Amino acid sequence: MVGTTAVAEARPASLYAPSAVVLAVAQGEDGDTVVRASALSCAPTAQGTHPDPRAACAALAATAGTLDALLAAPDSNRACPMHYAPVTVTADGVWQGSRISWKHTFSNACAMSAAFNGNAVFAF
């Protein structure tokens, strides 16, 4: 009896590098008290629990994975109160195949909103 041997060929599940992150908004400087969170997957298509995954993925793509670039153009016409009630935003996951973990703390929710200036990433 002649036997046959099959060799399993490794194939990627997708031609796109994985891009999936969990975005969170938390009260406080430590980021431990999460107020809201959203899952976002950008490759091969924009999807997830984020209310506008296409816009959020486009904004992240524009940063080339450098999330500090999201803060590059704050709204200088927006006046925020000078009270301290820290809000911390985080992004953890994989962007174009590389692990990312990003965290930024704002003095209050108004300062956070002004910093993102209409950017869809943390608009959930």
Score class of each variant (00 low, 15 high):
V87W: 07
R11I: 13
A85N: 07
L70Q: 01
G31A: 06
A114K: 02
A43K: 15
A64I: 04
D30C: 04
D92L: 14
K103D: 04
C110I: 00
G65P: 01
C42Y: 09
L71Y: 08
L67Q: 08
C110W: 01
M112Y: 00
T90N: 01
G31T: 05
P81N: 00
A6P: 14
G97A: 02
A61G: 06
A58F: 09
T105Q: 06
P53I: 09
N77R: 11
L15K: 15
A79H: 01
A43W: 11
G31C: 03
A8K: 13
R78K: 06
L71G: 00
E9P: 13
T33S: 04
Q96K: 14
E29N: 10
T5K: 15
R99I: 10
A46C: 05
A26M: 02
C42N: 01
L70S: 00
P74K: 02
T4C: 08
G97E: 01
F124V: 13
T90H: 03
H83W: 10
V89R: 00
G93D: 02
Q27T: 07
S76G: 09
E29C: 09
T45R: 09
S38L: 06
L60D: 02
K103Q: 12
D30W: 06
A13F: 13
R36G: 08
A73M: 05
R11M: 14
Q47S: 15
T49F: 06
G48M: 10
A24K: 14
V34T: 05
T105V: 13
V22A: 08
P53S: 03
A56S: 03
V21K: 09
F116H: 06
Y84D: 05
S107E: 11
D75E: 08
I100S: 04
G93Q: 01
G93I: 10
